[in-house]
Simulated scan of single mutants.
Amino acid sequence: MSTTMTGGCQCGRIRYSAQVEPDKAYLCHCKMCRHATGGVSIAFVNAPKSAVRWQREPDWYASSKIARRPFCSHCGTPLGFAFLDGDNIDLTVGSFDDPAPFRPSQNYATESMLTAWTDVRHLPGMTSAENAGVMDRWKAAGIRPPE
């Protein structure tokens, strides 16, 4: 079921709203997406370009001869991926204000998947609040830590 959701970059310079289907998100494991985002994979949701409204046009990087990627040149947030000749755009799930409703429905470019990173539930965990050094830095800066 399609719903309108909002998102944007880390600094707030680029904002958007998009009509998306949260249960049809996916993880891309291709090497180009890994390099573009700095992650081991990237979570995307696909939407028609006509269903995305940019409050301010993002910056665009021509990542290949066939595609480009929207991003914020001020804070560096990757916002998506789009084929030059396509009618759709992939938006980064992490750039949505509330990414909690998204559910992955598939993996893409599995030939490049870093399998050691596919299931990390068995690893020990720590909350941000348990990291005194980080919390002290936020407190000294006079701001609340991000959630």
Rank of each mutant, 00 (worst) to 15 (best):
G7N: 02
G8W: 04
G8V: 05
C9E: 02
C9R: 01
C9D: 04
C11T: 03
C11H: 06
G12I: 03
G12M: 06
R13Y: 09
R13E: 15
R15A: 07
R15T: 07
E21P: 01
P22M: 00
K24T: 06
K24Q: 14
A25W: 01
Y26E: 08
L27I: 09
H29E: 10
H29S: 11
C33V: 05
C33A: 09
R34D: 04
R34Y: 06
R34M: 10
H35D: 11
A36L: 12
A36S: 15
A36Y: 11
T37R: 07
V40T: 14
V40Q: 12
S41W: 11
I42V: 15
I42H: 12
A43K: 01
F44K: 04
F44W: 14
F44H: 13
V45Q: 04
V45G: 04
V45S: 05
V45I: 12
P48W: 05
A51S: 15
V52P: 00
R53D: 12
R53L: 13
Q55A: 15
R56T: 15
E57H: 07
P58R: 04
D59N: 15
W60G: 00
Y61V: 02
Y61C: 08
S64V: 08
S64L: 09
S64W: 10
S64D: 07
K65I: 08
R68S: 13
P70D: 09
F71E: 05
S73F: 03
H74A: 13
H74G: 12
C75G: 08
G76C: 11
G76Y: 12
G76Q: 12
G76D: 12
P78F: 06
L79T: 08
F81Q: 04
A82L: 02
A82P: 00
F83A: 14
F83I: 09
L84F: 11
D85E: 15
G86E: 13
D87V: 11
I89W: 03
I89M: 14
L91G: 04
T92V: 14
T92F: 04
V93P: 03
S95N: 06
F96G: 02
D97A: 11
D97I: 03
D98L: 00
A100N: 07
P101C: 06
R103F: 04
P104W: 07
P104F: 10
Q106Y: 13
Q106A: 14
Y108L: 13
Y108D: 12
A109G: 02
A109C: 13
T110E: 15
S112D: 15
M113Y: 04
L114D: 10
L114N: 10
A116R: 12
W117S: 13
T118V: 11
T118E: 10
D119W: 06
V120G: 08
R121I: 03
H122Y: 11
L123C: 12
P124L: 09
P124I: 05
S128R: 14
A129P: 01
E130P: 00
A132T: 11
G133F: 01
G133V: 02
G133M: 02
V134C: 05
D136W: 00
G142Y: 02
G142I: 00
P145E: 07
P145A: 14
P146E: 03
P146H: 01
